[in-house]
């Protein structure tokens, strides 16, 4: 599904990613762990197409297409979903309007009929119920005045609604208490299927207790220095990054 080869990228003239190689097949869940400044968030932004993150080398193929040629909205419509570490507050835009616009943009892209207000409401109510999210969140402006937990829940709701093929979770666990973490993890687990993959970027092992990965990679100084199964995460937790990176 996703094939990253020798990916190099810089931000503001500074090289952050220094040759990443990573292949994610359908149905697989990969975790990328690493210390602060290793390039974890940069990787998620490069994959989702954020301006200012300049790819200087390597390639990323997604479903047989050159991902790096696509605009951010096209990547999203093609099934890539970035759950933000810091979801953005957008005053003046109601959550419901935002969700409907996003969903219909994606449906339109795929040549499907757009949902009308009633169809949309029915669908979104199903999802909020499943995820135990209060409906009143939909009336509020996107993320404005949301607590950290609410913001992350909102990300999970969007993910449930948009049903992506590849989920990129950028430090979804940061700033979450254990209950919120469980809700977020459950949301991701619900979406697990043989056709759907995930790349979970995290600093701590904690999230991986709830979303169990198939593979764990250690990212240090812009490169993947070690890969293994879920036991690698536990080892990291025990020994710390310094020892593993040096090994």
């Amino acid at each position: 599904m996703l094939e990253i080869k020798d990916l190099r990228a810089e931000v503001g003239g500074k090289e952050i990613l220094k040759g990443i190689n990573l292949t994610i097949n359908s149905g697989e869940i990969h975790a990328v762990m690493g210390p602060n400044g290793a390039g974890k968030s940069t990787l998620s932004y490069v994959l989702s197409g954020r301006h200012g993150y300049e790819v200087t080398g390597g390639s990323v193929m997604y479903d047989g297409q050159n991902l790096l040629d696509m605009d951010p909205d096209v990547r999203a419509c093609s099934g890539i979903f970035l759950a933000f570490q810091y979801p953005v507050e957008i005053p003046g835009v109601a959550s419901a309007t935002f969700l409907k616009t996003a969903l219909n943009a994606q449906r339109k892209f795929r040549g499907e009929e757009e949902l009308d207000a009633m169809q949309f409401l029915k669908l979104v109510r199903e999802k909020t119920k499943e995820l135990d999210i209060k409906d009143d969140m939909l009336k509020r402006a996107v993320n404005v005045g949301f607590s950290g937990g609410e913001k992350k829940r909102n990300e999970v709701l969007q993910m449930a609604l948009l049903e992506p093929k590849l989920m990129l979770l950028d430090e979804t666990d940061s700033g979450l208490d254990i209950d919120a973490l469980k809700v977020a993890a459950e949301g991701v687990n619900r979406l697990r299927s043989p056709e759907r993959s995930a790349l979970i970027i995290t600093h701590y092992q904690r999230l991986l207790d709830y979303i169990v990965p198939d593979f764990v990679h250690v990212l240090a100084d812009g490169k993947i220095v070690k890969s293994g199964d879920k036991s690698l995460a536990l080892e990291l937790e025990e020994k710390g990054y310094a020892e593993i990176s040096a090994a």
Binding site: S48, R50, H51, P72, R75, V88, F98, A102
Partner: peptide, 14 residues
């Protein structure tokens, strides 16, 4: 706001 613009685009909105 660039952050807001990217957030909307990252959800599929052109």
């Amino acid at each position: 706001d660039d952050d807001a613009l990217f957030y909307l685009q990252a959800r599929g909105i052109p």
